[in-house]
Design a protein around this nucleic acid. Structure first.
Lengths: 213, 213
DNA sequence: GTAAAAAGTACCAGTTTGTGGTATTGCCCG
DNA sequence: CGGGCAATACCACAAACTGGTACTTTTTAC
């Protein structure tokens, strides 16, 4: 089995070498690069193409580790980013996950737990505390929750919902009519009813309701 | 310290009494009700007002445990729902979290782990496997990810972005103009440029881009 | 300091919406 | 059987939108 390729990004050189040592201890892991700044990381990591990046969340400089993830993740979606923090800074961790990180560890964890977390991440898990998980779940179920209990939309007939669907893609009446083999006038009438039922007065408002906003 | 009030919903009477026994073993937990069907649960749980509900994910009947959470959670947002499953049915667990559950456990877990998970949930955690957490994180970071790297939007000037913001709330040119103390004609011109830069031809398409769709 | 963007205003012509009204057909429910 | 609703279609008018062009004033960048 190939070793998991790991990069370390941290401005503390002491910590960098400690982490590097831990990773190099086991044959299943290989440290393929260390960087001290966000700029360096953004420049070098795409070429190195590691499996996992350990990223300090507070990179001292202007650009934080979070910015760094934001910049890198879109270029390399297959790479897993794990944030390293000194204490459980909920908000920051939350931000990092939103930016594209997939997990985090505390810097004070033991070598064996660290290695285990790296493997977990590599295998598609998301190592994090139950507290953070809860925040993520909450943020995630929220948006959908509203959409569900929006009884207004459920009052629409199937035909109306269908037309709202097209409407929210930005088609004109004429285009929708062509798609459904109907008269544009009929579409207009349906839309008229949709607006009544949703209590809105134009397309954008209707579309916003449709998407639960 | 008050005991954590727990309700159990499961159609298997054998399992109900097993769970009840485990919970009653410790003084820190109290079983305040057991139900066999979703209907019964939806009827009785709001009055009982437990801290935690252990909910079978496959309730055999027409209504699943997920539907049950969907019905109950909005009424009692302070109550924590924990799904119980036989094996890791990712999709279902995911659905349940989306519906308002905050964690889950496998039915085969040991009593001590079960109790620990209940406490974790009660204290604001979200007990779940690292795999599921990853799915949730992915689903949650997704929407924002696209918005960020949509370079088209970043090409807009600040003024244009500002106007797009109003536009996506469904205001007319005249209304936006009034808000910004400008002529409607000016708004029109800005929108004209916005459409050019985003390669769209109407409001709804522009709004969709704005929201990363 | 000059050239290039960005911001603001105005006007034209044509198209699309928003808001009403009317009318026909089919279907379900009491 | 009759009333009500959904779906279809047409008309009409005002309002709003779209795609141009044209011109001035700030800001920004080199």
């Amino acid at each position: 089995m190939e070793a998991i390729k790991v990069c370390i990004v941290d401005d503390n050189s002491q910590l960098r070498s400690t982490l590097q040592e831990i990773i190099s201890m086991s044959e299943d892991y290989r440290c393929v690069g260390t960087m001290a700044t966000a700029e360096q990381a953004i420049r070098e990591i795409p070429d190195i193409n590691p499996d996992v990046v350990l990223m300090d969340i507070n990179l001292g400089t202007v650009e934080s580790g979070i910015d760094c993830v934001r910049a890198l993740k879109p270029q390399m979606p297959a790479t897993n980013f794990m944030m390293c923090t000194v204490y459980e800074e909920d908000e920051k961790i939350f931000e990092a996950l939103r930016a594209g990180a997939s997990g985090y560890i505390l810097k004070k964890t033991t070598p064996s737990i660290l290695l285990h977390a790296i493997r977990e991440l590599y295998e598609g898990g998301a190592p994090m505390s139950s507290q953070i998980a809860r925040k993520v779940v909450a943020a995630f179920s929220q948006q959908n929750a509203q959409r569900e209990n929006d009884q207004e939309i459920s009052k629409l007939t199937n035909r109306e919902k269908e037309i709202l669907e097209w409407l929210s893609k930005g088609l004109t009446y004429k285009e929708i009519a062509a798609n459904l083999f109907l008269s544009p006038e009929t579409i207009r009438k349906h839309v008229y009813h949709i607006y009544e039922k949703l209590h809105v007065t134009n397309r954008v408002e209707a579309v916003n309701k449709f998407f639960g906003r």
